[in-house]
Design a protein around this nucleic acid. Structure first.
Length: 323
DNA sequence: GCGACAG
DNA sequence: ATCTTGTCGC
């Protein structure tokens, strides 16, 4: 799904003479958790002359920022050109010009429903058959995702990489939809367990990136996150809904079951793997591989696709964007 | 010195 | 995540 296109269509619905808010757009997308992503997507608006991001203001009626050489001043100028009065960086008669009646099918709400539906396919009983141990990570440059998987098979270590275009911003709770298109190619033949940079069942739907990817790929997965998405830490356990769903192994290592593995076995596996401060080396390697892939691809001009652009990188510089 | 809604 | 190489604030 191209959430950017969906989003810019929503922004384009705000009629001349009216404004909307970051929160209202997040609500139209289907989840208030997307409020920051709203600001981000506005800031990279590729077509500011036709997608009126200057009509997006703060929920208290303040005009807010605008990514433009003239900044807020330009945002105010465009709003006044629409017939909106602004005094002291505040919309006059804010309630009367506030537009929230978006025509939308709330895509994030639907994705959240999909998560809850597919969670029924999740198994937390350990069922690991093969002996591979693998890890994946993704690096980004704008819309380009650079995925790397490090696979330990017997005494051999293989690295696989892939480049994919991503049109889904980072939104807490929806990491799968951003990262999976990039990792699916590099993890397809794994016969064993896969470590994923993110959470498993430690998630609002009990179905985080690692769990969702495991179900989608049909392989055992373990979520290893570097920071807490939700829940209460009690001792080593992370409690959600009164139950331990994850284990804190280190300041930057939170383990939760992804798919086809129990919490205890997920923790046991991670503890046995080569690690630094209990953070698995395989994940660090995957991170480095994804990062160096990004740097080398950018150094080479982004691959064959960009050859006709010569040495230029094809910078997409937004002219006017709200932020 | 550590936080900050996974990345 | 990326941007940077020193940052604002509790």
């Amino acid at each position: 799904m191209d959430l950017y296109s969906v989003f810019y269509d929503l922004v384009s619905q705000v009629p001349r003479g009216m404004v909307t808010t970051y929160g209202a757009l997040a609500e139209a997308l289907g989840d208030m958790a997307a409020a920051r992503a709203v600001g981000y997507m506005l800031s990279v608006n590729p077509d500011p002359e036709n997608v009126p991001c200057y009509r997006v203001v703060h929920s208290d009626g303040k005009v807010g920022k605008y990514t433009h050489p003239l900044g807020t001043q330009e945002k105010v100028r465009r709003l006044e050109n629409d017939g909106i009065r602004v005094e002291g960086e505040r919309i006059v008669g804010f309630e009367n010009v506030l537009f929230t009646d978006f025509h939308t099918d709330h895509p994030l709400r639907r994705l959240r429903e999909e998560q809850k539906r597919k969670r029924a396919m999740l198994s937390l009983e350990t069922d690991i058959t093969g002996n591979d141990v693998a890890a994946v990570d993704v690096s980004y440059h704008g819309d380009e995702a650079f995925a790397a998987a490090v696979v330990q098979r017997g005494s051999e270590v293989h690295v696989r990489t892939a480049v994919a275009r991503v049109r889904f911003p980072y939104i807490p709770g929806y990491l799968f939809y951003r990262e999976f298109p990039a990792i699916r190619e590099v993890v397809r033949d794994i016969d064993g367990v896969l470590l994923i940079d993110g959470n498993g069942v430690l998630h609002p739907s009990g179905f985080g990136f690692a769990s969702q990817a495991g179900v989608e790929l049909g392989i055992p997965t373990i979520g290893v996150a570097k920071s807490l998405l939700m829940g209460q830490v009690e001792g080593q356990n992370v409690i959600v809904g009164g139950r331990p769903v994850a284990r804190v192994l280190g300041r930057h290592c939170i383990v939760s079951p992804g798919h086809r593995v129990s919490l205890e076995d997920a923790v046991g596996i991670v503890r046995l793997l080569p690690n630094r401060h209990l953070y698995p080396m395989l994940l660090t390697m995957a991170h480095r591989e994804a990062n160096s892939l990004r740097l080398s691809e950018l150094a080479h001009g982004g691959g064959e696709r960009h050859l006709r652009e010569g040495k230029e990188q094809g910078e997409q510089e937004g002219q006017g964007n709200a932020h």
